[in-house]
């Protein structure tokens, strides 16, 4: 039988999908980007539970995005389902390869090494003419099993695609969290020695987490590229990675749902802040993060747990 969390999550996705045609265009576009980025955040949550914070997750985000862009530019492949899977797979392969090195490091060394790798990709993208150099290049619109929607319909179709990807990812990651490999995140963070002496390799556990988070980031990047219809080296830049870490802190590592709520909250706050204070929107974003750390140190996701606890305490 499905758990209470799964049912709430399924209902939320169904309401969003059904209600999307009623929403204003700007909100659909904003939510599309927010949920695409939420996939990257979900990957960061997986690593953060183990005590690892990568400052270079934009590496996989950019690989997913550029894979989609390059497929559109150099091949006849246009189907969005195929290109999104291709973006996720490319990022997963790179995560698997760099994982052999990254999985051996912890704490700040892990963070800085991942940052260094993303900056290498940034450097390559900036200097490579065939990859669009600093300007990047246009991404083909893509088709949905041969259907090529235009205008507002395309935005809606993309939103549904992103929602579908997020729903699948949420179910799989929730299942992973309940598995032996997923649930060992806290034991690994607490005491690597004990985990090793119980008979399992901590490096291999972390390597798997890196590959999963890479696949999620690649998928997020691919979907973002389709939504924006443009890729550029900024997608691999360290500030992009920093933005994902920002959202992860805002969301918290408590649950799968937190990644989606956190990402949507971030995009909404940023959008409103830019509207209200075009010259100083960072001030509002920074204050929002500061307040979250002060009053919700375990992120927005902990709000639900707190409310539930309070309800249980006041129950007769």
């Amino acid at each position: 039988m499905a758990s209470r969390g799964t049912l709430i999550g399924a209902a939320a996705f169904a309401i969003l999908a059904a209600g999307a045609p009623l929403l204003p265009q700007w909100l659909v576009s904003l939510s599309t980007i927010a949920f695409a980025n939420a996939l990257v955040v979900l990957g960061l949550v997986i690593l953060w539970r183990t005590g690892l914070v990568p400052f270079g997750q934009a590496l996989f985000y950019a690989i997913g995005a550029y894979a989609v862009a390059l497929l559109g530019r150099y091949t006849p492949v246009r189907d969005v389902f195929v290109v999104v899977i291709a973006g996720a797979v490319c990022a997963g392969i790179v995560a698997y390869l760099v994982g052999f090195l990254l999985a051996r490091y912890r704490e700040i060394f892990f963070a800085m090494l991942s940052l260094a790798m993303s900056m290498i990709l940034y450097g390559v993208l900036v200097k490579t003419e065939t990859l669009g150099s600093t300007d990047g290049f246009h991404v083909e619109a893509g088709s949905f099993f041969g259907w090529r929607p235009q205008g507002a319909m395309r935005n809606l179709a993309l939103f549904w695609l992103v929602l579908g990807c997020c729903a699948v990812a949420a179910v799989l990651v929730a299942r992973y969290f309940r598995s032996v490999a997923g649930a060992l995140a806290i034991p690994v963070r607490d005491n690597e020695i004990r985990v090793e002496f119980l008979g399992i390799s901590v490096d291999r556990l972390i390597h798997l987490k890196l590959v999963i988070s890479g696949i999620l980031a690649g998928m997020g990047g691919a979907l973002a590229a389709l939504a924006v219809q443009h890729v550029d080296p900024q997608m691999a830049y360290w500030t992009t990675s920093g933005g994902f870490v920002f959202v992860t802190i805002l969301a918290g590592a408590g649950s799968v749902a937190a990644a989606f709520v956190g990402s949507l909250a971030f995009e909404l706050v940023r959008s409103i802040a830019v509207d209200l204070l075009p010259g100083a929107w960072q001030l509002i974003l920074g204050s929002a993060l500061l307040l979250t750390i002060l009053f919700l140190p375990e992120g927005l996701g902990s709000l639900y747990a707190r409310l539930r606890r309070r309800k249980e305490e006041t129950a007769p």
Binding site: S179, V180, G182, L184, L205
Partner: peptide
């Protein structure tokens, strides 16, 4: 569990 990490990712903890 078995030694494979993939198998560990597919087996529930509890």
């Amino acid at each position: 569990g078995r030694d494979s990490i993939i198998a560990r990712a597919l087996t529930p903890l509890d």
